[in-house]
């Protein structure tokens, strides 16, 4: 894949930790790859696997689900559910041909501005060599 491919990444960020963490990254003037398009959700537990698959079908090359660290969920247990859901989703998407490396689930707290930048940079670098995702999409005759 060409070195100048810029993956489009959709990030589902929980309102209470990761979104605030991303804010922290900004206010701290820490640079991070502009590849991520952030969608704020109330909780990582709100991220239905539908969202992830839909993102892939609508042109995302990678999808991130970021939530509060386990134990810190604003709703007590949403991220525990997300953890199970995506541990499985990861393996399943890989099985239908969407490489496991295109999906990332991680935890970023409101204070972790540095960590947010680092996680996004790492994931972008991970998706870049895979090239654009265009599987299971429309093929018009």
């Amino acid at each position: 894949m060409s070195d100048n491919f810029e993956p489009r990444i959709v990030g589902f960020l929980c309102n209470w930790c990761s979104y605030a963490g991303a804010d922290m990254t900004g206010t701290s003037r820490i640079p991070y790859p502009p590849n991520i398009r952030i969608i704020r959700v109330p909780c990582s537990g709100r991220v239905d696997p539908l969202f992830v698959l839909k993102a892939f079908q609508e042109g995302a090359d990678g999808v991130m689900v970021l939530g509060c660290h386990p134990g810190d969920c604003h709703y007590s247990e949403g991220n525990y559910h997300a953890r199970r859901r995506y541990a499985l989703m990861h393996r399943f998407l890989d099985f239908v041909g969407i490489e496991a490396d295109r999906l990332c689930i991680d935890w970023v707290s409101a204070a972790e501005g540095h960590r947010f930048a680092q996680v996004v940079a790492q994931f972008t670098a991970q998706v870049q060599p895979l090239g654009p995702w265009n599987g299971l999409q429309r093929r018009r005759r």
Binding site: P49, L50, L53, Q57, L88, M89, L93, L136, R138, R139
Partner: peptide, 18 residues
């Protein structure tokens, strides 16, 4: 009734049965 819809349905249906 095209590939994206079909794939979406089957992948999500299987996942809903996890």
């Amino acid at each position: 009734i095209e590939l994206p819809e079909k794939a979406f349905f089957h992948v999500m249906r299987a996942y809903h049965l996890a």
